[in-house]
Structures are given as C-alpha cells and as structure tokens.
Nucleic acid binder design. Structure first.
Lengths: 148, 148
DNA sequence: TACATATCCCATCGGATTAATAGGAATTAA
DNA sequence: TTAATTCCTATTAATCCGATGGGATATGTA
C-alpha cells in the first residue's frame, strides 16, 4: 500500500495540473479544501515536492504552488519514490536503493529474486507512463464512455 | 517492500519444496539454520502458514513441517496476502479488502484509480504464476544458462 | 511604512506496525 | 518417563505514519 502522503501528493498534483494556468500560484488551503487533505499535512507534502523539483512556489500574499514541469513530465513513479522510497518489493531488485539479501546464497540464480525483478520492471514501467497528463486523459475518456 | 516475515516465509517454503519427501516433516531449527532465519521468529511464521492451510505439521519428537499442497499449488500471492495483507497499492482497487477513498469524488472516472487497478492486476497475475515449482524451475534454468 | 497573508521550517505527539524474544503448555516417539 | 518437538501467549524496543503547533520569513497592497 502506498502511504497517505503519496496519495495526497498525487491528488494535489492532479488538482494543480487541472487548474494549471501559466505560473499562476494556487494556495495550499484551496487545494486542501477541494481535495479533503489536512491543511498542515499538505503543507509539508507540497514543500517536499518543491524541494524535489516537481513544484515551484511563490511566497507572501498571492503566493502559492504551481507545477514546475509540464503535466506530461511528472509521473507517479517519481512521486512514490519521493515519499515511500523504492518501488520494488525486495531491496535486492531496486536500482537506486540496492541492498543484498543477507540470507541469499547466490543472487545470480535466485528464483525468488527473478520473480520480484519482473514485478518491479513491469510496475515501474506502468508508473512511469502514468503522468499527470495520462491520468487526466484517462479520466476524460472514462467520462465520455459513461455518457453514451 | 514486503516484510521480512513474508521473505522468510517464501525462503522457508522453497526450502521445504526442495527437500520435499512425501510427508516427511522437517524441523524448524533445520530450516532456520540453513536459511539464516531467527529460530523463534520462524516458529511463528510456519505456524501461521499451517493455520492458513499451506503447511502441515507433526508434533512431538520427530515432528516438523511439510507442504500441505504440491509445489505448483502454492504461489507467492497467497503468501504475501497472508502476512502483508492486500497486494494492491490503493485500498480502492483491492478485491478482498476494498475500501473507498474518502477524498474520491467519482470512483468510476478516477484516473488515479485506473492506473493503480492496472498495476494491481498485472502484479497479482505475475505473483499467482510464481509458484514454488515455478521458482525452482527458474532457478535451475538460470544455473544451466551460467554453466555454459 | 505597516499590515495582512502566504510559504517555510522545526519540533513534537500518539498510535500502529515490525522484528524479534521469552517462557511455558501440549504432544509424541523412543 | 524422558527428551524433543510444535503450539500458544505475552512482551519488548525500535521505527514509521499521520498529523498538529508555533513561529520565522517573504511579499503584495493600502
């Protein structure tokens, strides 16, 4: 399961992508209200995403947050890694956080490892393709399909 | 990431599958030593798997654990669910533990949900196919490939 | 300049979960 | 009867998660 932090982050990002107007900052409290996220909690989340280069912000009156990249350049894999760490289910199949299994006798021929490596690759692929743009497109397509 | 409990469980299962001789129980301590799992911890893990119908046991002297099903009937999805709960990354895309997202406005057209539903389906598929037999086969295939 | 309103930053908190251990009851073969 | 094993309950230390509080800092506007 992903953490609430990650879920909130994704919801906030999609909100920002939907209301995206050329560097027009949107305030934390507006996002918090609309997406039903605890105000103070969201504050920390957005700040983290700013420091990670996903968002930009303006301080002071009329301040707020906006996307630092375009909606098709921000994907869920990036967000999940930021808040929940590695996407892989085993440390021995992560790329960025690799750690050997203490109990492992031979990594090169470990059947368990090879299963979880496949799962990781497939998952990362799907989550990388899941950009904010892709999410909005999907949502729209589903709406149209229902209207018929 | 899967818990150590799940990882230990899988390692123990593969060990049992490899040393599988028609209802011949293998002792906890033997598995613990060979797989480098804390003895007492493994005790609880094997007991859980017995209560879940994956293992059988014999008590008393010459007692121990053995597979209750054949190696191709036991898969990783089942083990993960037992110890770590749902495989899905969001509660709104699980089959057995479904829970609505509080903040969700319309589940039927939620783009986020549809992404995580895809991931769930793909992952469950792969993990269901990852039986103890399949793991042993993979391992053997990799060994042969290296010997060349 | 003063003020209102934002983000930024740090510290803390209760509760849940995880990994592991301890101690002893129940069972069974020899 | 005894030795060896699984079974069962309780406890622990450490860590993480979700959330909150208070105040420092920046900035547009009257």
């Amino acid at each position: 399961m992903i953490s609430k932090k990650t879920k909130y982050a994704i919801n906030a990002l999609v909100y920002l992508a939907r209301h995206h107007k050329e560097h027009e900052p949107i305030q934390i409290s507006r996002i918090a209200e609309s997406e039903h996220i605890p105000r103070k909690f969201l504050e920390a989340i957005l700040l983290d995403m700013k420091n990670a280069g996903i968002l930009s912000s303006r301080k002071g009156k009329t301040g707020g947050y906006y996307l630092h990249k375009t909606p098709d350049e921000i994907n869920i894999a990036e967000v999940m890694r930021l808040f929940d760490g590695p996407i892989a289910l085993l440390p021995c199949v992560t790329h960025n956080y690799y750690e050997r299994c203490e109990e492992c006798k031979d990594e090169a021929t470990c059947g368990i490892r090879s299963v979880f490596a496949d799962v990781r690759n497939e998952t990362v692929n799907m989550l990388k393709n899941a950009t904010l743009q892709a999410i909005m497109d999907r949502s729209e397509a589903m709406q149209k399909a229902l209207e018929k």
